[in-house]
């Protein structure tokens, strides 16, 4: 039964990947939609990394957009100033973000809940100020352009080459999500969930809470920074806009909508929200009112997010189809 269940879940995940792989062909290379899909893939990675920290480990980090931006600036600035090729600049962005993640983790070791939220959001605010006032290096509010693009032959990873870029983004997406998936299903993920569910019990069974808090900060910041670096290579510009509150809320909503700590809910949320914000673009800033309404609706009506819908619906199906399903559930 259990093996069956895991098998079913893996099959669904593989099916999802297959659909993502065939989408560009189905869309016949529609540039506009492909570019939105690329954005959704990148947000999906960030939202999943954030959810690893917030949903699985229940460490209330508000710093993941900051880690994303640290990765972006590290990659962009080193590429521009030192001429480092993208393939080295992108991992460097991840590593730098991970170092910041570990430092913030150290500060948060003895803290919990809302205090961690405050420390991590402190990083977010400090970073914004540093970027805007460190104009000489960071380019200030207007940001930085003119770093070497991620390029294979004549194809450039940018909105001008949607078909090519989509598959690059998908490759990175699959790699990073596979890492997250493996972590969730490893003893590390078990430690996250144990500490989340009951810290005193987990500690009494030999789980070192400090170690796993550092691990979750390190890993999730690394992935956030890495995808931040990929993000700026795609758009060819780094700017502090990524730290704006509407974007912060948007990513937060992605994994809330998908379902906290319910892989791959954050990805599903990222796709829905990216397309909704895109569709609502004519509303300008008013679209964030719509997003706000979605948050309220989800929190009140489906607290477990979209991923919890099957288990909410199951009792009704069971009632409708009678005993057969009940037996299947028990056996």
């Amino acid at each position: 039964m259990v093996v069956n269940k895991i098998g079913r879940k893996n099959a669904l995940l593989l099916g999802g990947v297959l659909v993502l792989g065939l989408l560009p062909i189905a869309l016949q290379g529609n540039a506009r939609i492909l570019n939105v899909l690329i954005a959704a893939l990148m947000w999906g990675v960030l939202a999943s990394a954030w959810d690893l920290c917030m949903g699985y480990a229940r460490v209330f980090s508000f710093g993941h957009l900051a880690f994303f931006t640290i990765g972006a600036y590290t990659a962009g600035l080193t590429a521009r100033q030192l001429g480092i090729p993208p393939l080295a600049a992108i991992p460097l962005g991840g590593v730098t973000a991970a170092i910041f993640g570990l430092l913030i983790g150290l500060l948060c070791l003895r803290l919990r809940g809302v205090y961690i939220a405050m420390v991590t959001f402190g990083l977010h605010m400090v970073l914004q100020t540093v970027i805007i006032w460190g104009r000489d290096i960071t380019g200030g509010k207007t940001g930085v352009t003119g770093f070497a693009p991620l390029q294979i032959g004549q194809y450039i990873f940018s909105p001008s080459y949607p078909f090519f870029s989509y598959y690059i983004a998908l490759g990175i997406f699959i790699l990073l999500l596979f890492i997250i998936y493996r972590i969730i299903n490893s003893p590390i993920g078990l430690a996250f969930v144990a500490l989340r569910d009951s810290e005193p019990y987990a500690k009494s069974l030999g789980v070192n809470e400090y170690k796993y808090k550092l691990i979750v900060f390190g890993i999730s910041a690394f992935i956030a920074g890495l995808i931040g670096a990929v993000y700026i290579h795609f758009y060819g510009i780094i700017s502090p806009v990524t730290l704006d509150i509407p974007i912060f809320l948007m990513v937060l909503i992605m994994f809330m909508l998908g379902g906290l700590g319910r892989f791959p809910g954050a990805v599903i949320g990222a796709f829905v929200i990216t397309f909704v914000t895109e569709a609502l673009r004519p509303l300008l800033l008013w679209r964030f009112v719509a997003l706000g309404a979605i948050v309220v609706a989800v929190t009140v009506f489906i607290p477990g997010g979209l991923m919890s819908i099957p288990e909410r619906v199951r009792p009704f199906i069971r009632r409708a189809f009678g005993r057969r399903h009940v037996e299947e559930e028990v056996s």
């Binding site: 078990l190 969930v193 144990a194 989340r196 569910d197 009951s198 005193p200 019990y201 987990a202």
Partner: peptide, 8 residues
């Protein structure tokens, strides 16, 4: 109090 890891 029987505190467990309720979600697993």
């Amino acid at each position: 109090i029987p505190i467990l890891f309720p979600s697993i």
